[in-house]
Design a protein around this nucleic acid. Structure first.
Length: 737
DNA sequence: AGCACGCCGACT
DNA sequence: GTCGGCGTGCTC
């Protein structure tokens, strides 16, 4: 019997494919984890060997021969390979596709798993621009000066960017003033201490947290709940220093915002270490070089967003997930993994400590801490004894609103500006107005492709759908009754900006949202104005809630907090509270506590009261109780089957069929814990011209749910109704849309 | 998911 | 006459 190679292939199909070995390849070379190029249908793909078997169910006429063995040894270390297998299983995703998400693009295209040697131009240490041989060679002199500013050398490909000309360098090389080195492109480190800069002293709470993480050995998980300004980052830095001293590598995950450069800067100042930042602008080659360097132990610290979780580490010592509550850790397509949850799984597999940090922890993590699964560490003291911001509910029931702004709020803003301080207005809604309304007949500007209103953008003079990016010029007459009285209703950031500029003509009003920061460095320019300290008003969306610090802002106004309290999504209130607290955290400085005014029509709502009067921890307690009472996560486990299609009946048929299969499984497998809710139309039934619906599975415990899911998805794949729809299964969905 | 095959509308 | 629309069938 010949050898049978069982491969995971980059395909959504949740099964392995069997092949015969390529010509001339012997059994010893076929180690699980190596890549092979194989014919697949009418194309060639790269697969990963899962196992070598002696027999196969596949009829011999279908069995094909693999084309080429691509690796001598498996490129993916076994710990990570196991993490991928676990993830594929947990998220009910195809293993081959899961591996594709984890491997650098070049590896899944079949490139050799080798780093690229590159040429670097380096000035000799004793080369001086004053060298007499350069007295009559001004261009060489300039080139040498430029090169001397780069002690690690300049990549050959980047010479042009620095205005360096190869001819000058060749001449300098001939004089022995410049050399070319061929080596890997990677950060370097000098001999000696890991610290390039002294550490800040830790306060008592920080020290406790630091020591708690250091005290354990092997896997343990810590929830570090630290209010803004309490110095979480310093704790991270010192934990990383201790990790480096132990000869190990650290992995830091950050949310998907532009905080990478800022974080990297801080790390580079602090450490004499080899640090890499994984960000979206990297080329495939750069990404693979970092991946390989980390795997081979040639990087000390890896910083990156969600997908960086899959970076292999030769000597892993610590994983930190910063802002662990942030929704960007959940991937919303393909393999729908949650990087925070997988970080904990990975730490368990690799026997490491993991730290989840946030000022506003997710209810999931708080619950895990309550259950004793995570150690709960708290940082409540602000640096320099700064006072926490004061929260005030501003009841706007029966108060007239002027472009979404109430009189008391405007008064408070005026007073703040008069004192020479800055005001931040938080409004999580872009555009001028959420919709256009005909005052005569009630017609609303509706997106033709979605069940949603179109937002009116005055700046660009168009109606835009924020769900499918449909754009059109607003009608002059009402399309329904022909009258001319079309009015923008409600207020977005654009309208708030315009109105505030009218009301406060003497101060700049800076709008910060996706529309005003689309151009490169537009955000940087706005931030520089803010940091110059002039009194001004910032109007912005959640972009303002993340990362930045505005010491001159002493008043934060939250305009539309209510939407979080009556949304259909059970997580809306948690998100709203996190956003409010995060925005509030941007404000204030040591001497001057910030003031936070929350405009609301629901001033008596228990969650609102808790948040404003007692802060986030009390809010979270209250919200957790409500979740428990309602049997919602984290007290229950969810899986959501989503489907969409051109025709509504196709979606219905598929979900009905899926329902019956699941119902049958629940009975046959005796899994009464698993409840089926639906199928129901999605909260937005039509989006981008497609009909959407979903089926929710809810269970009081995880094991029965997963038992059912594993069998269910395989059956869904072969359902004839499935061919007419696009469907996906979301395990632990974070939003039900 | 790709990719090809296959059968019906407006055009270089 | 053909280019190309997306239905449907398959991938060891």
């Amino acid at each position: 019997m010949p050898l049978i190679l069982r491969l995971a292939l980059p395909s959504p199909l949740r099964r392995l494919f069997d092949y015969l070995p390529p010509k001339g390849v012997v059994e010893e070379q076929l180690r699980p984890g190596v890549r092979l190029r194989v014919p697949f249908g009418r194309r060639e793909v790269v697969g990963v060997l899962i196992e070598v078997a002696r027999e196969t169910e596949v009829p011999p006429d279908k069995l094909r021969k693999a084309l080429q063995l691509l690796d001598e040894r498996p490129p993916l270390p076994s710990a990570l390979f196991e993490l991928c297998q676990w993830s594929a299983q947990y998220y009910q995703h195809s293993l081959g596709d899961t591996l594709s998400w984890a491997l650098p693009a070049l590896l899944r295209q079949g490139e050799p798993a080798e780093r690229r040697l590159q040429r670097f131009w380096i000035a000799q240490p004793d080369a001086r621009p004053e060298d007499p041989r350069l007295a009559r060679a001004p261009r060489q002199r300039e080139a040498l000066k430029t090169l001397r500013q780069h002690p690690h050398g300049v990549l050959h490909e980047l010479l042009g960017q620095l205005g360096l000309v190869k001819d000058s360098l060749d001449l300098l090389q001939a004089k022995g003033l410049v050399t070319v080195e061929t080596r890997y492109h990677q950060p370097t480190r000098h001999q000696g201490s890991w610290l390039a800069q002294a550490e800040l002293p830790l306060n008592s709470e920080q020290r406790l947290a630091y020591e708690a993480v250091r005290a354990g050995s092997g896997f343990h998980c810590h929830l570090l709940e630290g209010v803004t300004g309490s110095g979480k980052t310093e704790v991270y830095l010192q934990l990383i220093r201790a990790t480096l001293e132990a000869g190990r590598q650290a992995l830091l995950l950050i949310p998907e915002i532009n905080l990478g450069p800022q974080t990297l800067g801080r790390f580079e100042q602090r450490f004499n270490a080899r640090i890499a930042l994984l960000h979206s602008a990297l080329t495939d080659r750069e990404r693979m070089d970092i991946w390989l360097a980390a795997r081979d132990g040639e990087l000390d610290i890896v910083v990156g967003t969600r997908s960086a979780l899959f970076t292999p580490l030769k000597h892993p010592g610590l994983i930190i997930v910063d802002e662990e509550h942030d929704a960007s850790y959940k991937q919303q397509e393909g393999l729908r993994y949650h990087a925070r949850d997988l970080a904990v799984v990975r730490a368990r597999f690799e026997n490491l400590p993991v730290v989840l940090g946030s000022a506003t922890p997710s209810l999931e993590s708080l619950h895990n801490a309550d259950q004793g699964r995570y150690a709960h560490l708290r940082l409540s003291l602000r640096a320099g004894g700064a006072q926490p911001p004061r929260f005030e509910r501003l009841d706007v029931r029966s108060r007239p609103l002027d472009s979404g702004l109430s009189q008391p709020l405007l008064k408070a803003m005026g007073a703040t500006l008069e004192r020479g301080q800055q005001v931040l207005v938080f409004l999580n809604r872009r555009g001028f107005a959420p919709t256009l309304l005909c005052h005569d007949c009630g017609w609303l500007a509706q997106c033709p492709r979605c069940d949603a209103r179109m937002t009116y953008h005055r700046g660009s003079g168009e109606l835009r759908c924020h769900h499918c990016d449909q754009r059109q010029t607003p009608p002059r007459h009402c399309p329904s009754c022909g009258k001319l009285d079309l009015r923008p209703v409600g207020a977005g950031t654009e309208r708030a900006e315009e109105r505030l500029q009218l009301l406060f003509p003497d101060v700049p009003v800076l709008r910060i949202d996706r529309d005003t920061t689309a151009r490169k460095d537009a955000l940087g320019k706005l931030l520089r104005t803010i940091h110059s300290g002039v009194p001004c008003i910032l109007v912005g969306t959640q972009m303002l809630a993340k990362g930045h610090h505005f010491p001159k802002v002493t008043l934060v106004a939250v305009l539309d907090a209510d939407s979080g309290l009556f949304s259909a999504d059970f997580r809306a209130s948690e998100r709203m509270a996190q956003q409010i607290v995060q925005v509030a955290g941007r404000a204030g400085r040591a001497e001057e506590p910030g003031q936070v005014l929350i405009q609301t029509h629901l001033a008596d709502h228990p969650l609102m009261v808790q948040l404003a009067e007692e802060g986030y921890p009390a809010f979270a307690r209250q919200a957790l109780q409500e979740r428990r009472a309602a049997g919602l996560p984290p007290f229950a486990y969810l899986a959501l089957l989503r489907a969409d299609a051109h025709r509504q009946d196709q979606v219905e048929n598929f979900l009905e069929a899926a329902y019956h299969v699941a119902e049958g499984l629940a009975v046959n497998l005796a899994l009464p814990q698993v409840e089926l809710l639906g199928p129901v139309p999605a909260p937005m039934e039509r989006r981008a011209g497609r009909h959407r619906a979903q089926l929710l599975l809810q269970s009081s415990s995880r094991a029965p749910l997963h038992r059912l899911l594993g069998i269910w998805v395989v059956q869904l794949e072969s359902l004839p109704e499935a061919r007419q729809v696009r469907w996906s299964l979301d395990v632990d969905p974070i939003d039900l849309f």
